[in-house]
Each structure stands twice: as structure tokens, then as C-alpha cells.
Design a protein around this nucleic acid. Sequence first.
DNA 1: TTGGAAAGTCAACAAGGCTGACGTAAATTC
DNA 2: GAATTTACGTCAGCCTTGTTGACTTTCCAA
Lengths: 164, 164
Amino acid sequence: MAETAGGEGLLFLTDEQLRKGIEAMFFAYRGFTADPDRILEGMDYGRAHHRAIHFVHRSPGTTVSNLLSILGVTKQSLNRVLRTLIDDGLVRSEKGRVDARERHLFLTEKGLILERELSDAQRARMRAAYRAAGPAAVQGFRQVLEAMMDPEMRKQYNRLKEGG
Amino acid sequence: MAETAGGEGLLFLTDEQLRKGIEAMFFAYRGFTADPDRILEGMDYGRAHHRAIHFVHRSPGTTVSNLLSILGVTKQSLNRVLRTLIDDGLVRSEKGRVDARERHLFLTEKGLILERELSDAQRARMRAAYRAAGPAAVQGFRQVLEAMMDPEMRKQYNRLKEGG
DNA sequence: TTGGAAAGTCAACAAGGCTGACGTAAATTC
DNA sequence: GAATTTACGTCAGCCTTGTTGACTTTCCAA
């Protein structure tokens, strides 16, 4: 009654519906990270390494500072992760030619292999979920997620989505 | 070409589409937690406290072991969080009547106030996202998230969704 | 040539996960 | 009634991943 005030189809904006959405995000994110986490446990790596690997793969040659703004962590935190990846030969860091202060990051062959393993697992779950829900649901899924992002993050997301 | 092999409308299952979904989850989850995180920083609490408060509020009188299975952490980890919440008077722990080994958890007045503040902030973002995307998108959003959960988590989610 | 940006590094710390071991009270089983 | 199991709490120690602060090196650009 009170909840429907204002229109016909606004039942999806009730506190109860919003709470369900919040809990769905919580439980789904657990599933979202579960498979890569399982692969990484036992190796010396964690979720932070996965994120770095993902975005270096996504934008080969990206700089450290660009990666910082995407990941939203401090350089000290990123550096610790990047350090181990470089030392272990998964990531190659190349001094910039036009601006030699910058470091451009690439996955090595070894890095590409781990990236593939991780993203295969994560995509498999995503694919199963997409297939189960269908194309229309997927479109809605993406719409709501995009609307949920901070504007700054939405920029990052769209930059990745379109550009290289 | 190769991607469309097998059907007409399967373009939403390409690796590229899946990757976009993965990145959308990553960036959206940041937004999802941003507002409560902001409220909690400065207080002595963090995201773990928020989760405990949320689910105690959601299921008043729930037991410690039930909370453990929902949150998926160890009792030592939960206990550290619960301890501070009880000591600070946000959560009340009551010895069970039918089974005195169990502890039943409730939010106090003070706990309810913080819960309200946190969930108001989180719901506000969710509401804005829902409103922007519309009811059909919201339905799809929920469908994909549910399909993404581990079966065990989906059970927990549905139990909360229906029961008390 | 000098100021400031980009990157890297060291040290210290905190939150919040984890394991293992142990203790206590209460319920259940034999 | 004794033994076992269950629910919970706690101590100790460890790991990952985040933080701040201070400092250095490199090097572009005014």
C-alpha cells in the first residue's frame, strides 16, 4: 500500500526488494571469486595477484600508475604484488621509451598461461550463469551493475570496455 | 562468425561478453561496499562487522553456528568481530532456553541504529541503480546473480529470502 | 637548472582471514 | 551414570592485503 505509492510498477523499489538485491550481491560475489581463489591457493598468490594479472592482460603495456587508478590501492600495496609477479617471471616491466619514468607492464608466456587458467575458470562460471539466465537477463544484469558503480569507476570500466 | 556458431542469439556468451561481465562485477562490487565502508571508517569497525550486523538484524535470535555457515568464516574470525560488537553493546548474546549450549544473537537499540545507518546508505545506492535500470533489468540482475552462486550459498540465500 | 611527477623501496601497522590446541558447559548416546 | 559429541569461547601464531609516512632515484619540462 504505502510501498506502491507513486505509481503502478514500483514494487521493485521496496526495502525488501533492495535487501534481496544486497544479499544476492553478497552471495554471488563469493561464487564469482571462488574458482580463481581455489586455483591460487597453494601457489604463493592471492586475489590481489589475480586482479593485477587480469588488468595487465587486458591492457598490455599499461603503466603502473594506470593500474593503480584501476585497482584503487596504494602503490606500496600494488608494488608488493607486482614485485613477486615480476620476480617469478609472470610479468615483464619495461622502461618507457617516450617517458622513461614510466614502466610498461606485460604478461610473459608464463603469465599468460596462469591468466588463461584463471580466466577460463571464472568465465566458465559466468558462462553457465549467463546461459541459465538468458540474454535478456544478462542485459539487465549489466545495466544494474553499471548503475551501481561510482562515476569514476564507471569511466574506468567504459574505457576498458571500448578502447584497448 | 566463429562465435555465432551453434545458434542465432548466442553472442552474449562470447568470451568478450563474459569478460565485460566479470569486470562489471569487479567495479560494481566496489560501489556496493563503498558507502558502508565510508561510514565505518573512523569507527573501530570494518566490513566484517557490517556483515555480522546485517545478518543478525536479518535473522534476530540466530545462533553463532548459523551465522558461521552464512558468512563462511571460521569461528575464531567471527568471534573476534562478535566480541567487540557485544562489548560495545551493539549485539546481545542470549543463552538458549531449549538448548543452553547455543547463543542467540540480537541487535540492541544501539545496534539497530548503526544497522539502519549502514543499510540506508547501501539501499540508497541500490535504489538509485534499480531506478535507473528499471524493473525488467532488476529481474535479470537477480537471475544472473542467483545463477552465479555456489549451490550451498544459493540455499542460504533462498532460506533468507523466504523464511524469517 | 631546478621543481615536480613517476616509480620504487623500507618500515611499521591494522583488519580480517586462517590453523591448531585447549577449555567448558550442555546435550546426547551408550 | 559415564562417555562422547556439540556449541561456543579463547589463546597463540601465521598470512594476505590493505594502510601511512619517509625517503631515493630518475627524468621531464618550465
